[in-house]
C-alpha cells in the first residue's frame, strides 16, 4: 500500500491515545473503561437545556450577523445516486454566487459531494474561490465495506483534490462495543487524508442515546478527527439541537483536556434561518465564541442556504420576496 503522506508527519493516534488513557497498550478494554467513565447525560435535562437555548430571541443586527455567519458555515451538499456533472456544476455556481442580486453575500464554506464528483467540483469552483470541496468517503452512507475499500475510497477523493473528507464510522462495531475497531478505522482514514481535514460522521440517529453520542464524539476525537459530524442525512433523525449540544460539550471538554480544538458539523434536517440561529446560539453559549467560525463549525445542508438568503433580502429591502427570487440549483427531480 502506498500513502501520499510520510509516516512521521501523520499524527500517531495510537501513541497519543495510550498517553491520554495512561496505558501501555491500547486495547478495547482500555477504550471501554475510558469511554464508559465519561459522565452520563440525563436525557430530560439535556433536552430542556437545548430547548431553553432555542428560546433566545435574535433580532436586528444580531440576526444580520447570524445569517451571514450561517451562510459562511454551510457545506452546500448534494449526495444523490442521481447526481450528474451538470447538477454538481450547478451547485458550484450557486456556491460562487449565492445571491445574484447581492454580490456582497458571503460564500458557503464548501460544497460536499461524492468522491467521483470531486474533480468536476474543483474545476467548476476554480482555484481562488475559497470554497472548499468536501467528499464523502468510506462507503458512505452505510460504511459497510472492507477497510481496503474504505481507504481506497478516501485516497481517490484526496487525489482528486478534495480539501475535506467526510467519513462514516462503523456503527455496527460501535454498538457492539468494539471501540478499538472504530478507533483504528478513523485513525487509518485520517492518515489517508493527508492534508485534507477529516470530518467523522457518527450517524447519531443510529446511536440513539446521548451517552452513545458523547462516547462516539470522544472516540472520534481521540482517533484524530478534525470535525465530529452528526449525520449522513440518510437516516432519520438527522441533526437535532440536543445532539449537537452534546457534541459541542465534547469539543469544549476536549479542548480543556488536550489544548486542541475540534470542529462540529450538524448535518441534515436544518432548513430554516430560525433553526440555524438556534444552533449558533448553542455554539456561542455551550462551546464558546471561538467556534463561531467556519473553520470550526459547519452546517451540512442544501435548502438552508436559500432560506437564509430570503431572510437576508428581507433585512436589506424590508420586504419578503419569495422562493422565485432566489436561485435554486437543486430542485426535486420528481
Amino acid at each position: 500500500m502506498s500513502t501520499t503522506v510520510a509516516a512521521d508527519s501523520a499524527v500517531d493516534a495510537t501513541a497519543r491515545a495510550r498517553d491520554l488513557l495512561g496505558v501501555t497498550r491500547l486495547t478495547n478494554t482500555a477504550l471501554t473503561s475510558w469511554l464508559h467513565g465519561l459522565p452520563g447525560v440525563d436525557q430530560v435535562g439535556a433536552e430542556a437545556r437545548a430547548a431553553a437555548l432555542g428560546t433566545r430571541s435574535i433580532k436586528t443586527t444580531s440576526k444580520q450577523w447570524g445569517i451571514d455567519t450561517a451562510i459562511s458555515m454551510i457545506d452546500l451538499t448534494t449526495l444523490e445516486g442521481a447526481d450528474t456533472p451538470g447538477k454538481v456544476r450547478g451547485l458550484c455556481a450557486k456556491a460562487l454566487t449565492p445571491d445574484v442580486t447581492d454580490l456582497s453575500t458571503p460564500r458557503p464554506a464548501a460544497v460536499c459531494v461524492y468522491g467521483d464528483m470531486v474533480e468536476i467540483a474543483k474545476d467548476a469552483l476554480g482555484a481562488d474561490s475559497r470554497v472548499n470541496v468536501a467528499a464523502v468517503a468510506t462507503a458512505f452512507p452505510s460504511g459497510r465495506a472492507s477497510m481496503p475499500v474504505k481507504l481506497a475510497d478516501t485516497r481517490f477523493a484526496v487525489e482528486a483534490g478534495a480539501d475535506e473528507i467526510d467519513m462514516v464510522i462503523d456503527r455496527g462495531a460501535f454498538l457492539a462495543g468494539d471501540y478499538l475497531t472504530v478507533f483504528r478505522e478513523i485513525a487509518a482514514v485520517k492518515e489517508a487524508c493527508g492534508d485534507a481535514r477529516l470530518k467523522v460522521i457518527m450517524e447519531t440517529g443510529e446511536l440513539v442515546t446521548y451517552d452513545n453520542v458523547r462516547r462516539a464524539s470522544w472516540l472520534s476525537m481521540l482517533a484524530g478527527g478534525d470535525f465530529i459530524k452528526t449525520s449522513t442525512g440518510k437516516v432519520s433523525p438527522a441533526a437535532t439541537l440536543p445532539v449537537t449540544m452534546i457534541m459541542l460539550e465534547a469539543v469544549r471538554d476536549w479542548l480543556d483536556l488536550t489544548g486542541e480544538m475540534v470542529g462540529v458539523k450538524p448535518a441534515g434536517g436544518i432548513r430554516t434561518s430560525k433553526d440555524a440561529l438556534k444552533y449558533l446560539v448553542t455554539v456561542n453559549e455551550v462551546a464558546g465564541e471561538e467556534w463561531l467560525d467556519n473553520h470550526w463549525f459547519r452546517f451540512g445542508a442544501s435548502s438552508l442556504l436559500n432560506d437564509l438568503l430570503l431572510q437576508r433580502q428581507r433585512i436589506a429591502t424590508g420586504a419578503y420576496s419569495g422562493a422565485d427570487y432566489v436561485t435554486d440549483d437543486s430542485p426535486s427531480l420528481y
Binding site: 433566545r56 430571541s57 433580532k59 443586527t61 444580531s62 447570524g66 449558533l280 456561542n284 465564541e289 463561531l292
Partner: peptide, 10 residues
Amino acid sequence: MAKFEYAPAP
C-alpha cells in the same frame, strides 16, 4: 467585544 452580541429584544 463579543462576536455574537444579542441585540435588545424587549
